[in-house]
Simulated scan of single mutants.
Amino acid sequence: MKIPTRDLTADDLELIAFAQKIVDENTDGEDGIHTMGAAVRGADRRMYGGINLYHFTGGPCAELVALGHARASGARELTTIVAVGNYGRGPIDPCGRDRQILFDYHPGIRVILPTADGVRSVAVTDLMPLAGRWSPEAGAQPFAG
């Protein structure tokens, strides 16, 4: 099954750069607690950021922190989200928990993530039937759409 994706827009590229700036300015090493940055755009075009807080009990992902930041700032309708890794790893697809939360709270949101066709935008409703792939040996793998 081929998942429909879209080319990135200028707004998408700006959102990626914002998330990258967050993680670049706040990372604390390859295996540190702050290794992922995220950014979400509201319908009013404002951007909100977040950074992960790794913890062995399952600390919050950067996407969830960005969602909380947006909500605490009054944003109710969100259009696009992206998470990026430190050290220039670029966009990374959201984990299953993040996908479910995005689907439940913002079913109209688009997710920027790596695909077989490069970094693209995907509707979360199209992404939900698919599970993110991860292994200790290879880490997070690109979405194979």
Score class of each variant (00 low, 15 high):
1 M>E: 14
1 M>K: 14
3 I>C: 14
4 P>T: 10
7 D>L: 10
9 T>M: 13
10 A>K: 11
12 D>V: 10
13 L>I: 13
16 I>L: 10
16 I>M: 07
16 I>K: 01
18 F>E: 11
20 Q>Y: 03
20 Q>P: 02
23 V>Y: 08
24 D>H: 05
25 E>V: 03
27 T>F: 10
32 G>V: 06
33 I>K: 15
34 H>V: 10
36 M>R: 09
38 A>S: 15
43 A>G: 10
45 R>A: 12
46 R>T: 14
48 Y>H: 15
49 G>I: 06
50 G>Q: 06
51 I>T: 03
52 N>F: 09
53 L>M: 13
54 Y>N: 11
57 T>M: 11
58 G>M: 10
67 L>K: 04
68 G>H: 12
69 H>I: 07
75 A>F: 11
83 A>E: 07
85 G>H: 03
85 G>R: 13
88 G>M: 10
94 P>L: 02
98 D>K: 00
100 Q>A: 03
107 P>K: 01
110 R>N: 04
112 I>N: 02
112 I>T: 05
113 L>W: 00
116 A>W: 00
124 V>K: 00
125 T>I: 06
126 D>V: 02
126 D>L: 05
129 P>Y: 02
129 P>S: 03
130 L>D: 08
130 L>P: 01
131 A>N: 11
132 G>W: 04
140 A>G: 06
141 Q>K: 13
143 F>H: 04
145 G>P: 04
